[in-house]
Design a protein around this nucleic acid. Structure first.
Lengths: 153, 153
DNA sequence: GGTAACGCTTCCAACGATGGGAAGGTCAAG
DNA sequence: CTTGACCTTCCCATCGTTGGAAGCGTTACC
């Protein structure tokens, strides 16, 4: 299989496959005489593994750890589980933070007429008081924190 | 007030204040003869506004819109509300996506012994089946999608 | 044998928000 | 006058992913 086929079979774009190879997440595949990358079923399997881990929000670094465990037949499932549990914790924390923002905003929005008049609890809520006790910023989410919508493919 | 004081008073780092100025989110403040930025109470107020909007996950672009509305005394609260509602929708969507990931992973983890043995439903879950029907990737969250932890300040 | 579709490489850029640091100027207090 | 805390500008890095361009080789099909 060449890279295009491997991409289709795994759900990882050719760009990303080459990128993962460049950063050492996956090893360099064999090449044809003419230089084309050739992927074995096993390698495609690994790409699918990556695709799935990625969809669950694992970082490239974590995917590296998981791949190593995947390939290690003498792994301890405890090691896998601990990575997973830590990731779950992070995911839940993020979700909680998002929900808190949403709730705060919802509360403000519920009290906003939403008509042609200028008075608005939302704007006022941003403008007034609560000098945020200055430091110790909370982790934040921006609109773009969700990965750029690759779904326009 | 110089930039350091304005930063402390608003909760926006000096780096970010300069950055917001550079991208035109805020206008350039007056300078002393020696080139130091000087912030009025009003400008600090604006920075606090930004700080709060940012904590609710608004993007810089949206903050620009909100700031414009804030300064526009003839604004329609409906305009503010619509930005807020749209943002709430996005926040909820992200939270939902995170929760779905967490749940999937939790399910796998619950079935993992987590001991010294190698068999692990998590790894197996990643490795097997579900070729992701190839394309149309979902928006994803990576570990780093949560803003880098600035709280080590 | 031509052509289109794919592949190759390298490099460069961007996204968003933020931090880090270097190299230098300024200001206040001792 | 020195010291230290502040300010200035400028560039670089992060994180994951995508895009593009340039320039050329290969493969498959008609």
């Amino acid at each position: 299989m060449n890279i295009g086929e491997a991409s289709k079979a795994s759900g990882v774009s050719t760009k990303m496959i080459r990128y993962y190879e460049s950063i050492g997440l996956i090893s360099a595949p064999l090449r044809t005489e003419s230089g084309y990358r050739v992927y074995s079923d096993n390698e495609v399997h690994g790409l699918r593994f990556i695709s799935r881990a990625r969809d669950l929000g694992f970082s490239v670094e974590q995917m590296g750890d998981l791949l190593a465990l995947w390939r290690d037949r003498s792994r301890a499932s405890a090691d896998v589980k601990s990575i997973a549990l830590e990731h779950i914790r992070v995911l839940d924390e993020k979700a909680k933070a998002l929900k808190a923002m949403s709730d705060t905003l919802r509360h403000l929005a519920d009290n906003c007429h939403g008509d042609g008049r200028p008075d608005c609890p939302i704007i006022e809520g941003f403008a007034q008081a609560a000098p945020t006790s200055v430091k110790k910023r909370q982790p934040r989410f921006g609109v773009t924190d969700i990965a750029p919508d690759r779904s326009h493919a």
